[in-house]
Computed example of a mutant assay.
Amino acid sequence: MANHKSALKRIKQNKKKYERNKHIRSTLRTYIKFVREAVAGKDPAAAQQALAAAIPVIDSAATKGVIHRSNASRNVSRLTKLVNTLG
């Protein structure tokens, strides 16, 4: 265990950041899963609705630094292409 006051503070900060990022990443994966399940169910309306809900979550995760902006862009692009395959 750390002995310096600054090291103890850093441990607390890291834990707080880890919990926040974990929540955001988990939520992100859930929304992506909703889009993929709607596409697998061959329901264009549900897939479009799920995509519309997922895009802000993906952008928010990128803005907060949980994922890289290129990763966010790639996710949005791939999900959009996937939804568009339903016609």
Rank of each mutant, 00 (worst) to 15 (best):
I58G: 10
H23D: 12
G65L: 02
K33D: 12
N84V: 03
R20S: 07
L51T: 12
N21K: 02
D43R: 03
Q13L: 12
T80L: 01
A40C: 04
I32Y: 01
I55K: 09
L28W: 12
N21F: 04
N71F: 03
D43L: 01
R10T: 08
L51C: 05
V66T: 09
S73A: 14
I24E: 03
R78V: 11
I32F: 01
Y31W: 11
A54I: 15
A61H: 04
R29W: 13
V76N: 09
Q48L: 03
A45Q: 11
A72H: 01
R69P: 07
K16A: 15
H4C: 07
K16Q: 15
M1C: 07
D59L: 10
H23I: 14
A54M: 13
S60D: 14
R25T: 02
R25D: 06
E19D: 11
Q13I: 09
N84G: 00
I55D: 02
R74K: 08
V57I: 12
I11Q: 13
H4R: 10
R29T: 08
K42D: 04
N84I: 02
A72Y: 00
A52G: 08
K64A: 08
N3H: 15
V76D: 05
V66A: 14
A52V: 13
R20Y: 13
T80N: 02
K22N: 12
D43A: 08
N84A: 09
S6Y: 00
D59A: 12
I32G: 07
S77L: 07
R20K: 12
Y31M: 09
T63Y: 00
H68K: 14
A72W: 00
N84D: 07
V83Y: 01
A38D: 05
K22W: 09
L79V: 04
K9R: 15
A47M: 04
H23Q: 14
Q49F: 01
L86N: 06
F34R: 07
A47G: 05
V83K: 03
R36E: 15
D43I: 02
K81W: 13
N71I: 06
Q48W: 01
E19F: 02
V35M: 06
L8V: 02
D43W: 04
K81C: 00
V57Y: 06
N84S: 07
E19H: 08
T27W: 12
K22S: 14
Q13V: 10
Q49Y: 00
S70F: 03
K16H: 05
L82N: 05
V66N: 08
A46M: 06
S77C: 02
V57R: 05
G41T: 06
A61W: 03
K12H: 01
L79Y: 05
A53V: 07
K5E: 07
